[in-house]
């Protein structure tokens, strides 16, 4: 279980997170929705320690996420970054198998490569892609390689930052299904950021809406359609009118 209490983070005068409270139960798929620039990526990075919150508490399974607890947490963790964040000095398969080629999960090269190719297949990429370099791929392909890398070592906790942005509708469907599978089959805890309502409905157990630096609404996916919360209503129906301003 991941628990955030009163997380605040500002970049200079830009107060991005202003007291975020959120609980992500183990084995569930939590989806965070919210306009672009509201601090969703920053929130994930706070949990990972990549961004240091100004105040607030983060616990993972009841333990405060300090340096050593975080190392243990990261050991069984995978993340898909919004921009892919592939290592451009390494070919695709070595990106996917990064964890399997070094450190405690190290295994023979041939085996690591086989696993990488299998993971690439699961995200809809051909084995030939394995020997290309990230710069030779389209944005959507890079995203899927990033996804393959995130799941390569079968993590227990996975973060996906906009997994379907930049993909065609069919590929987006494939990825949604894959994320659902990972959560149900592997029993992983997932946190996904997305703007894509099809994606939300396909992968969420729970939804949280981030706006103005705080969680405005959170509940089960079935409750999302019914809620009268004006923020959620405006967001899921994509209306220009409502409490969320179009300029930010």
């Amino acid at each position: 279980m991941i628990q955030l209490t009163d997380i605040e983070k500002a970049f200079g005068a830009n107060r991005v997170l202003r007291g975020v409270n959120l609980t992500v139960p183990s084995g569930e798929s939590m989806v965070i929705i919210g306009g672009s620039g509201t601090g969703k990526s920053v929130l994930l990075k706070c949990i990972l320690g990549l961004v240091k919150p100004d105040s607030g508490k983060i616990t993972v399974n009841g333990e405060v996420a300090d340096t050593s607890a975080r190392d243990a947490f990261l050991a069984r963790f995978g993340m898909l970054f919004q921009g892919g964040a592939l290592f451009d000095s390494l070919p695709v398969w070595q990106n996917v198998a990064f964890r399997l080629l070094r450190g405690s999960l190290k295994r023979p090269r041939a085996e690591a490569r086989d696993i990488a190719i299998e993971k690439l297949r699961r995200v809809g990429l051909r084995p030939e892609t394995a020997d290309l370099f990230p710069a030779e791929l389209s944005g959507g392909m890079q995203k899927r390689v990033g996804l393959a890398r995130a799941i390569a070592a079968e993590p227990e906790i996975i973060f996906f930052d906009e997994p379907t942005t930049g993909l065609d509708p069919i590929m987006a469907g494939v990825i949604n299904e894959l994320i659902r599978e990972i959560v149900t089959e592997m029993g992983a805890t997932a946190m996904t950021i997305t703007h894509d309502m099809t994606s939300v409905r396909a992968i969420a157990d729970r939804v949280a809406m981030l706006h103005d630096g705080a969680i405005k609404w959170t509940g089960r996916i079935a409750e999302m359609e019914e809620t009268s919360d004006p923020y959620v209503q405006q967001f899921i129906h994509g209306r220009a009118e409502g409490p969320i301003m179009a300029i930010r």
Binding site: L48, L50, L74, A75, M79, F81, S89, F98, R99, S104
Partner: peptide, 20 residues
């Protein structure tokens, strides 16, 4: 230039999430 590019494209962050 190489490490700076890695930083701005979040590759350094990615390293951390891969326990490196």
């Amino acid at each position: 230039a190489e490490i700076g590019t890695m930083k701005v494209t979040e590759q350094i962050d990615a390293l951390v999430t891969l326990s490196t």
